[in-house]
Computed example of a mutant assay.
Amino acid sequence: MDVVPAADCPSIDCSAVPSIVLPLESTTGIKWHSHPQHQLAWAPDGVLVMAVDDCRWVVQRSRALWMPGGVPHSVTPSSPCAMLSLYFEPDECPLDWSRPTVVDATGLVGPLLTHLAGLPKPRTAQRDRANAVLWDLLSPLAVTTIPTVLPTDPQARKVAMGIRDNPADKRGLPEWGHEVGASARTLSRRFREQTGSSFERWRTLERLNAALPLLGAGAPITRVAREVGYHTASAFIAAFRREVGTTPAAYFGA
Rank of each mutant, 00 (worst) to 15 (best):
A6L: 03
C9V: 10
P36V: 07
H38E: 07
W42H: 14
A43Y: 02
P44Q: 11
P44K: 12
G46R: 00
V47T: 13
L48Y: 02
C55H: 11
C55I: 09
R56A: 11
R63H: 12
M67N: 05
G69E: 05
G70N: 08
H73S: 01
S78W: 06
S78G: 07
C81A: 15
A82F: 07
S85R: 04
Y87H: 15
E89M: 01
E92V: 01
C93L: 08
S98K: 15
R99D: 15
D104Y: 02
L113W: 08
H115P: 03
G118E: 15
L119M: 15
P122Q: 14
T124K: 07
A125V: 12
R127Y: 03
R129L: 13
L141M: 13
L141S: 08
T145I: 04
T148G: 02
T152E: 13
V159Q: 12
A160W: 12
M161H: 10
M161V: 15
D169K: 06
D169H: 05
R171G: 03
V180G: 00
S183W: 09
S183C: 03
T186G: 04
L187A: 10
S188H: 11
F191I: 05
S198K: 04
S198R: 07
R203Y: 04
L214G: 00
A219K: 12
T222V: 15
R223C: 08
V224W: 01
H231F: 02
H231G: 12
F236P: 03
A239F: 07
A239H: 01
E243H: 08
A249L: 15
